[in-house]
Nucleic acid binder design. Structure first.
Lengths: 148, 148
DNA sequence: ATTCCTGCAAAAACTTTGCACCATG
DNA sequence: CATGGTGCAAAGTTTTTGCAGGAAT
């Protein structure tokens, strides 16, 4: 498994004099295989154990922290009380990240449209703030819940 | 202190057969007095103790949970590792909530513009999802950090 | 009076740290 | 072989819960 993201990861580690270990690769692998799944630490741990059975929870925490610092994963709080992580989606300058969260059933829909340019323009003009990334959460009622 | 928000709170409690206590009023009071301040539980606790010195931390947790359920306060994760709360800003149908977070100094600027109508329109058309509220976080570089 | 709340302390859940051993570069 | 990483267990944090006494309706 040698996708672009894995290569980027190895490259970043090398640059910083850090080591490429099976555990680190496994954690990244799990996150890659569950893109858009918003995993909790415990869920990541459970899934990683199938790839690296001997891994300790502490290593999962340490690796997630590392991946966060490298901007390869994003922390997420979907207001269900859990802190979640998912692999970053902003390769090559894109930075879209919209979640549609149903207030009734809690379902999370991933939206990909990027219509925020206008707002970013306003941030720049009005607040002199240069936007480099954004996270948007829309709360509402999903189609299934509307039907009921 | 009998603002609109306090009255709304008392009304909601009454409706649900819950009781109006000094502790609950104090917690709401603190959040009202620090609108836009993004307080952690510990900060709320410290400030509430000046109003209700005998209050316990457990009661602060319980009250915040209650206020969350009543949609009077919003949970916030500004990616500095702390979970924060602030009083809700969507009285009377408004639901704006944009944070500009500087990736260098961590400063949080509150933006009030609401230019998201287009996006909400798209959510409705494309995903059949009715948006009732949104939380938007823009990461970027603030003016002070740009100058350096 | 009845029901709900509170403070306290204990428990549970979550996250970080120290250390001896191991693996990578 | 030097440096950094790992697993484990212990320590630190944060949050929740049980319970007996107290307050609100």
């Amino acid at each position: 498994m040698s996708s672009i993201k894995c290569d980027a990861f190895k490259e970043l580690l090398k640059q910083k004099g850090l080591k490429i270990t099976a555990q680190r690769e496994s954690v990244l692998e799990v996150l890659k295989n569950h893109e858009g799944n918003h995993l909790t630490v415990e869920e990541i741990y459970e899934k990683v154990k199938t790839l690296s059975p001997e891994i300790g929870l502490a290593t999962v925490y340490r690796t997630i922290q590392l991946l966060s610092e490298l901007k390869l994963v994003d922390k997420l709080e979907l207001n269900d009380g859990f802190i979640r992580y998912e692999i970053g989606k902003f390769d090559g300058g894109k930075h879209n990240h919209h979640h549609l969260i149903c207030e009734i059933c809690g379902r999370v829909i991933e939206a990909e449209d990027d219509l925020l340019d206008l707002i970013e323009e306003t941030c720049r003009k009005k607040y002199d703030f240069k936007v480099t990334n954004h996270v948007v959460k829309f709360y509402g009622i999903c189609n299934k819940c509307s039907e009921k």
